[in-house]
Simulated scan of single mutants.
Amino acid sequence: MIFLNLLTEGQEPVNLLYRPKLIPMRERLMEQMNNSPVGSVFYYDMNQVEGINGSGIDELIAKPIKEFIEHYKTDDKYLVLMNLNEEHDHIYNINLTLKEENVTVVGKQNEKIEIIGHIGDSLREILDIAHELREVTARDISDRLDKKLNLTSTQLNKLNEMRLLKRYEVQLEEGGRQYIYRSLFY
């Protein structure tokens, strides 16, 4: 778990609205992300952000997530938003842009987990269960939703590729292996 400061030390909360000022910020954050170990989960503290528009969301949220998705097999990195603010309409604004960009992120607002962006109802339902249980297997989801095991396995894998759930492998006593999918808030 790595907390990244969107702002430099001592900087007052800001509005992230003007792309030319956001590009150096994204480059600084991406350098930190690229130099972090495989498997890292990065947390942005949105408490530091008053307003954010499509430019801010694209530069600081969508582009890093797209890079994580592109390199998911080798880098295994994730981005989470913390302290989303109702007063500043963070979820509404981020959701609009991420849906257009075909990207999804998870965040917390008032200790409630929020799924923001482009995601279908079936994947959302599985992601909600994974956050509720903290860790799940394809069998857990299959049994709970009365779906075929192959389908839930594929859907959980898709959520991992989208960088919304961490995945790790365990060896089973009876032989073989099993993937376990973990909430990014665990």
Rank of each mutant, 00 (worst) to 15 (best):
E50I: 11
S142C: 11
G117T: 12
K148H: 13
E59G: 03
I57A: 11
N150W: 04
L123I: 03
G54Q: 05
E67A: 12
S55L: 06
K63A: 12
E125L: 12
G107T: 04
N83S: 14
M33F: 00
V103Q: 04
K66Y: 05
S142D: 12
V106G: 01
V103N: 03
I113W: 00
N85F: 05
E87S: 14
V41N: 08
D45Y: 02
Y43R: 11
I94A: 03
I65D: 01
L98E: 10
D76T: 10
H88N: 15
G120L: 05
L145S: 02
N53C: 12
F68M: 15
Y92T: 06
I129N: 00
E132M: 13
I115D: 07
G117Q: 07
H71W: 00
I126C: 02
N34I: 10
T104H: 01
H90I: 07
A62T: 12
T137L: 06
A130G: 09
N53K: 10
E111G: 08
R139Q: 12
G56Y: 00
K147A: 04
K148G: 14
A62S: 13
L145C: 08
E70V: 03
S122C: 04
S40C: 11
H71M: 01
F68H: 09
D146I: 13
L145I: 13
D121A: 14
N47C: 10
E101W: 08
Y44P: 10
Y44R: 06
E50K: 14
T104A: 11
G39A: 11
G120Q: 08
E101R: 14
G56T: 04
I69E: 14
K77R: 11
E100K: 12
Q48T: 13
Y43W: 07
N35A: 07
N47S: 15
M33V: 08
E114I: 05
A130H: 01
E111P: 01
P64S: 10
